[in-house]
């Protein structure tokens, strides 16, 4: 268990709802869920969620902390926003799912083998490096995220698609060498570092129970 996770368990005891309200993006909306289930029925990957959004909201209120934070469920969100526009109570469900996923990762509880967990982290690392996404490196890092053998298999399997993208100049081998970048990488990195520090301090503060 990560130190932060221990601190949060200590701090909130049996009040997981409060913990979510304090630490999860848009988490203060969770209590507004009226359990109608429209979100779950509207989700394009609904059948694959162990616990669809409506269920997650009830589990949060019921204090099922570990089940929620270790769940693969919120990593199934495609960000289609169907749930948001259909929710009669106007909960920003998509954002809460992203927020729960991020918080689970922050505490070291997220399922590390879940493919979207990996892809999402790869995407973030990729964009942070130069300020702009390098699609070629992102694609390759994704193919190889399950190891070398698996990576070669996936690459061969996807070769047709890659060739099509290359032929139409929608992919460039040049991205491997330099690649697109913001000019002010120094300012860009300083800015992100600061934002991360401020956010970490906020979570830390709740963790300490001040």
């Amino acid at each position: 268990m990560s130190d932060m996770n221990v601190a949060m368990v200590e701090r909130y005891r049996n009040n997981f709802l409060k913990e979510v309200e304090h630490n999860v993006e848009e988490g203060d909306w969770v209590k507004m869920c009226m359990q109608c289930g429209v979100c779950s029925g509207s989700c394009p990957l609904g059948p694959y969620w162990d616990h669809p959004p409506q269920e997650l909201f009830m589990m949060i209120r019921a204090g099922k902390r570990e089940e929620v934070l270790t769940s693969t469920s919120m990593w199934m969100c495609t960000s289609c926003y169907n749930c948001i526009v259909r929710c009669p109570r106007e909960l920003p469900i998509t954002h809460i799912m992203h927020g729960l996923a991020h918080y689970a990762k922050r505490l070291g509880l997220a399922p590390k083998e879940q493919p979207t967990f990996k892809f999402s982290q790869h995407f973030w690392n990729n964009l942070v490096k130069k300020g702009r996404v390098n699609e070629l490196k992102l694609g390759l890092s994704l193919y190889f995220m399950n190891g070398l053998v698996e990576g070669i298999k996936t690459s061969l399997n996807m070769a047709g698609i890659g060739l099509g993208m290359l032929k139409t100049k929608r992919m460039s081998p040049m991205e491997m060498i330099g690649g697109h970048s913001v000019k002010d990488t120094k300012g860009f990195h300083a800015m992100l570092k600061k934002a991360e520090e401020i956010e970490a301090a906020r979570v830390e503060k709740y963790g300490k129970g001040s």
């Binding site: 998509t94 992203h98 927020g99 990762k105 942070v128 913001v182 934002a195 991360e196």
Partner: peptide, 22 residues
């Protein structure tokens, strides 16, 4: 000198504030 917005998939590594800052 625009930068990436992190689309809707950067949330694993990117918390709310870093993403909004982008």
């Amino acid at each position: 000198d625009w930068n990436c917005c992190s689309a809707s998939i950067g949330y694993c590594g990117g918390g709310e504030l870093p993403r909004l800052t982008l």
